[in-house]
């Protein structure tokens, strides 16, 4: 396939690069002919830069990034905030969880450029080694980790989970949909299901979270 298509691919690639350049400057009519191939192939491996600025842990950061850069990669590779971890990079493990405008999200499944003006909190913004956030301290106290790789995501998620319960957001296990949810073991387990711990520290994580919430389970 590769051999047979080589000659064709070169010229097609050139065409696509031309198409892309036109696209970037916004020429519309000139694109009418190669329109399908640009969409199908998008083969031009050109980096398309885009500017974005947002607050990270209270500090305004301005970046010029390839549009493809996920929020996770912007934090880790460009701002060198490596507390946030890349686990699966497809939204299944939760290691990349950060809090954006008060809500926890998977930073691997969103583009940095989509967060102009946002306020982002990473694990580095919750506390410091000298002054731990209560959730960080509780994870230490209850041994809520083994290898620690999922821990920043677990902690960001846990902080947000208690906020969600406080805000009255129901969950799958809330028995009465119209009642204000309570911090219970069942509620916390369900709400933390987007954070996987391969070491299996779940019961200790649960202990840490419920202690911070001030409940005994």
């Amino acid at each position: 396939m590769k051999d047979a298509g080589d000659g064709l691919d070169v010229s097609r690639r050139d065409l696509l690069i031309l198409g892309r350049d036109l696209l970037v400057v916004g020429s519309v009519t000139a694109l009418a002919a190669p329109s399908v191939v640009v969409g199908q192939g998008a083969a031009a491996e050109l980096s398309v830069p885009s500017k974005v600025s947002f607050k990270v842990n209270g500090e305004l950061r301005e970046l010029e990034l390839d549009t493809r850069t996920t929020l996770l990669d912007a934090l880790r590779e460009h701002l060198l905030l490596t507390g946030t971890k890349k686990g699966c990079d497809q939204g299944q493990c939760g290691a990349c969880t950060v809090i954006v405008d008060g809500r926890r999200i998977n930073s691997c499944l969103t583009l940095a450029v989509m967060h102009e003006g946002a306020s982002i909190t990473t694990v580095e913004g919750l506390g410091t080694p000298e002054n731990l956030h209560p959730m960080q301290a509780a994870f230490v106290k209850h041994d809520g980790y083994q290898c620690g790789y999922c821990t920043p995501g677990q902690i960001c998620s846990a902080v947000a989970v208690l906020g969600e319960i406080k805000d009255g957001i129901p969950s799958h296990v809330s028995a009465d949909l119209t009642a204000h949810p309570q911090v219970t073991a069942v509620e916390v387990r369900e709400r933390m299901s987007g954070n996987i711990c391969r070491c299996g520290a779940y019961s200790n994580i649960l202990d840490a979270i419920t202690e911070v919430a001030g409940v005994k389970v």
Binding site: L23, G39, Q40, T70, L109
Partner: peptide, 30 residues
Amino acid sequence: RIPGSKFIAGGTNLLDLMKVEVETPAHLID
């Protein structure tokens, strides 16, 4: 108007598919 365009909102499925190049939009409209 723009060939290969896709809308992006939450992006949780679209970006997942773009990473494995099942989706290959040439232009994203946020």
